[in-house]
Design a protein around this nucleic acid. Sequence first.
RNA 1: GGCUCCGUAGCUCAAUGGCAGAGCAGUUGCCUUUUAAGCAAACGGUUGUAGGUUCGAGUCCUACCGGAGUCACCA
Length: 512
Amino acid sequence: MSQPNSWQPGSNVEKDRLEKAEKLAERGIELYPRRVQRTHTTAQAIAAFDAAGEDAAPVTVTVCGRIRRMNIRGRVAFMHIEDDSGRVQLFIRVNDVGEATYEIIKEKLIELDDFVQATGHMMRTKTGEVSVAVQEIVLLSKSLSPLPVIKQKTLDDGTVVEYGEFTDIEARYRQRYADLAVNHGVREVFRKRSRTINAIRAFLDDEEDMLEVETPILQPIYGGAAARPFTTHHNQLDQMLYLRISFELYLKRLLVGGYDAVYEIGRDFRNEGVSYKHNPEFTQIEFYKAYADYNDVMDIAERMVAYVAQKVNGTTRVHYDGHDIELAPPWRRVRLRDAIREASGIDYMAHPDAPALAEAINAISEKPLPPDTTWGRMIDILLSRFVEPNLIQPTFLIDYPRDISPFAKRVDYDDFHVERFEMFIAGMELGNAFTELNDPRDQESRFIDMAQLYAADDDEAAPMDEDYLRAMRYGMPPNGGFGMGVDRLVMLLTGQTSIRDVLLYPHMRDQK
RNA sequence: GGCUCCGUAGCUCAAUGGCAGAGCAGUUGCCUUUUAAGCAAACGGUUGUAGGUUCGAGUCCUACCGGAGUCACCA
């Protein structure tokens, strides 16, 4: 350490630990050594003992991990060390490790939260726990700040009971490392998150033969969704840039280029409010498949979610927020118009303009509509107030009004609706998809419609993406597109009811 | 951004407007098969921040900081 440290111990525990670190250094013990010689994970060590059998020659292992429990008796000590695979008990006797080493343990110079490496043979203690009879123990990393103390007891049936908690939500999010280190189950949520993304990729690559691509996150023109963007700036080019709000327009250009089916898994950024299901940056999967329509996309979507659930949880059933949900296809498909009519009694086709529809809504809902609500927006309000909360089992709502769907192709039965669906599970919107518009002239007029809508609105115009139209004029194959919020799928598969609990680092306000 | 609730020891929580407490962790002892180990003792606080009311504020009031919930925004 060449620079003096500004860090000062903030508690009696930290003061003690700093003193212990100095004592160790005085005894010539390296606090943060370079080399480690692990031969077994804790799980492998136990498995090796079980495989060898009780009467076999001793299995010698070197295991590493963080000390999570200590019980020092006069001349013998027990501790549990934890690594990514689990825990194993160390059995340490002064006779085996020698006076000098035992002193270090007895004085707790090596203590809770430190990382250690232990070498010894596997054995079973009197009370039956498979343990490492330690011959040598080496400090791997000295912990200077105490983690929250959580003790656990494993019952006979294998369930783990915890005593002591680390529940301060703010601290858990701001210091996710501490949350992961001590809270049983949090690491499993994020393992499942990883498996979810792997499974999506496997499904689209192997089952659907799609090509994974990467498109720009920094975009000169944003689009593909209605959301406020984050802005940034390239210094040398003196160029205003937006963080993407969707991948849509860049992916569809690739179908013009000749790929049959492309997908991207990545981060979107939306400069909007945060909630239990909204984070400013979130992970999205979008795919676009040539020669497919929204019916084909529905087939793919329901198979994909079931496939992922099977891979992640080993079942297509999930228990979420008090509901038992079956994800196996086929899912219910209902026209949006019918769903709204059933739930609210309002047939929006009977109220074809904003004032008429507003009157109908105000007649049945106490909540006032925001001023200047457009007709399309009212449809959305009807959907979110009356329909969405009740869509517990997987459901596709299909055929949306054209006004609120600028990238979807018209249905064949009227001029009002487009071939679009949204999918809902557990009262949450998970995905959004269309039979994609591929008529460049129709697309241009939709852009103009949107620009007018936004201009009437407020601060920003919906950007007209001229290059996207140019691409489309070369000819874009008919195609079906799909987008899904991966975080929300992970919530569903892990039983978490807040998006923050499936994001390792959810967005937080600056700490002053 | 509006409204409601919350912020006390490292962690989890108590405390009618009247001496700021407990358990765990840490410290000091005892203990060679414990496992939420145990027993004994001592220690641990600018009650989120800044003001105010009051003889007296963790508690009541105002503002601010942070968090949660909810509404709005999110086609």
